[in-house]
Each structure stands twice: as structure tokens, then as C-alpha cells.
Amino acid sequence: MSFVLTAIIMFAFWLLLSGEFTPILLGSGIVSSLLVAYISHDLLFGNARFGVLAGRFWRFLLYLPWLFKEIVVANFDLVYRTLHPKMPIDPEVRNFQADLNTDMGISMLANSITLTPGTVTMEAKSDGSFTVHSLVRGSDAEDMERRIKRIERGA
């Protein structure tokens, strides 16, 4: 199942990038997408069922606008701190435990933390323990964790 799905996605990607439909290009596209799907079909989807994945994907799309807003806020904050002559930063390192159980959720949280205000992920383990470096004391990521948990489980 995941093999077929990965192969189809890879082939669609191939068509998108090549934009031409000569037999030689289509043939090499089929061969290479099957090869890539054979090597890496367990990476893209894991072992989850299709319905669960579709639900997650949909909720992820709903999460994106909020993430974009946060990214813009984060950047204006960063611009202020970078260009201010005194550089008002006070870095600290913090640990916290996130209650997420898929690798996808954990990496999504790690990347979102890096992109949003004042925090960069330094360590994320697959049991959900995070080490975060924040530019200013006391910025938190709990709100984001709640949102990603909602994507993962659909509550």
C-alpha cells in the first residue's frame, strides 16, 4: 500500500518537474519512481493507515496559516533584536517533555519551534523530550505542542 502510494507520488513529482511527455522521459520516470519507492516506501508514511494519514494531512493544512502568522511575528521580533544597538537578548536552555508519539509529529514540532518566536530546537528525542535554546528568557512552546497533538490525534 505505502509502496504504491509512494510510487504514484514520486511519478507525479517527476511529471511536474519534467513537463515533457516523450516516451524516453516517461519510461525513465516510471523506472526511477519505482526504484525510489522500493528503497524508501517505509520512510514517507510509516505504517499508519490511509484514513489516519489523510486526516492528519488535512489538519496539517489547517495548521499552516497559524504557523505562517507565527513565522512573521518571529521574524519581526528577531529583526528588532538584531538591529537594536544594545542587542536585548538573554539566552537560556530549557528542557521539556512533549506528549507526542509519532516521529512525524516530533519532527514537525521541532521544525515549528525553530521557525517561531525566540526558540531553536537543540535536541529532540523520539520519546518526546526536547531541549530548546531560546533567545529571550521565558518564551514557551506549550501552545504549539497542543496544536501539533491535535494534528496527530484529531481531537
Binding site: I71, V72, A74, N75, L78, V79, T82, I89, P91, T114, L115, T116, G118, V120, M122, H133, L135
Partner: peptide, 13 residues
């Protein structure tokens, strides 16, 4: 680590 912040955020945006 503080240099990670501009590299990870402002650069991406």
C-alpha cells in the same frame, strides 16, 4: 546558538 536564530528563521522567511 544565538546565530542559529537568524539562520533558521530570517533566512527561511
Amino acid at each position: 546558538y544565538t546565530r542559529m536564530h537568524p539562520a533558521g528563521k530570517a533566512d527561511t522567511l
